[in-house]
Design a protein around this nucleic acid. Structure first.
Lengths: 182, 182
DNA sequence: GAAGTAAGTTATTACTCAATAACTTTGTTG
DNA sequence: CAACAAAGTTATTGAGTAATAACTTACTTC
């Protein structure tokens, strides 16, 4: 298998593991095991652990952006909004990993920023901007609509992270059919 | 100093340290040092590290609830809404720690839930429910208003965590005067 | 002043983990 | 087939860390 293909499997494995464990509690060992490769080999593919995390986090945001863009393609206004909302809901329900990884990313970036490391968050801010731009376009370039849409998305993330069951009143205002798989 | 008073200082120190470092990257050593006490003594005051984290996380949510409740006291409708929004904004600007700690909490709970530990999140779900209830009452028991208010709050948390500067277009729709202290 | 108790310490253990170095295998190509 | 490179391994290190055990002050109260 080529190094490039291996890197791809590492990113996928990293998403799964970091999503559950967060940055610090996830060892490079478990990632390597999931890939089916020795632990030190990861450091031939990536310079260090942080780079693996970053690649995984970036991929998740990018995937989310892609899903939203695909859902709203050819639609506008109210239709685009509900299509994206439904797509995001489905994404979370069918693939809880992406949500968890997102939350871990935000926490990790916040920690890095607090520690004075501004470089770490850069690629994630860029990825967020791309997503913001796509949503903004899909919603007719209305900034309030865009902000509102993303706000609801972030609340969904929070409630799902906290583990509120789907029928809890904390979810009132949403129509989520089931919770993300664990 | 009494054990109860010490516990109080531990909670405050823990908020500061966990906010920057997250659960796993924060050693009990640095918390103890901040309190001005030996590391093993923490385990006389709390059963384990997780309990310290939980106490800190719970305190943060509770504080947020208290701030919102105080801001909306005696007001209703639109007035209550803008009073709470302003109070939340001020809370974040003046005390970025609380925000960071919140994000770390969500990530930690998500990880615990994914690992099958449903007990860890319980106190935080309860704290969130209390906050939800207060906001709900303040906004005239309108569930859509409540959900919307909290959604914007969570977006604020996300953007601040990602480290977007106050004048960035990601903040459009908000009127935040400055970013939280670091 | 003895005796108890609450607040605190030092020393230690058992463990985990990112990263480096040195070596080996597998496939390709002139 | 020789020689090179890419993919991968085993062995190791050095640092950090939650938690336990055993010991020490300092204050109170009879």
């Amino acid at each position: 298998m080529s190094a490039e293909e291996r890197r791809e499997s590492v990113v996928r494995a990293a998403i799964t593991e970091f999503a559950r464990g967060g940055y610090n509690a996830t060892s490079t060992e478990v990632i390597a095991r999931r890939v089916g490769v020795s632990q030190p080999y990861l450091f031939r593919l990536f310079p260090n652990k942080q780079a693996i995390f970053l690649a995984a986090a970036e991929r998740c945001l990018e995937e989310t952006r892609r899903v939203l863009a695909a859902a709203s393609k050819g639609l506008e206004g109210e239709e685009a909004l509900s299509a994206m909302a439904e797509a995001y809901q489905r994404l979370i329900v069918e693939d809880g990993e992406k949500l968890m990884m997102q939350m871990q990313s935000y926490a990790a970036v916040a920690a890095a920023e607090a520690a004075g490391d501004r470089a770490f968050g850069e690629p994630l801010r860029a990825a967020w901007e791309r997503m913001w731009g796509d949503v903004h376009l899909a919603l007719g370039a209305d900034e309030n609509e865009t902000t509102s849409f993303l706000a609801y998305g972030m609340l969904i993330n929070t409630l799902a992270s906290l583990g509120f069951p789907a029928d809890h009143r904390a979810w009132s205002g949403f129509h989520i059919s089931s919770r993300p798989a664990e």
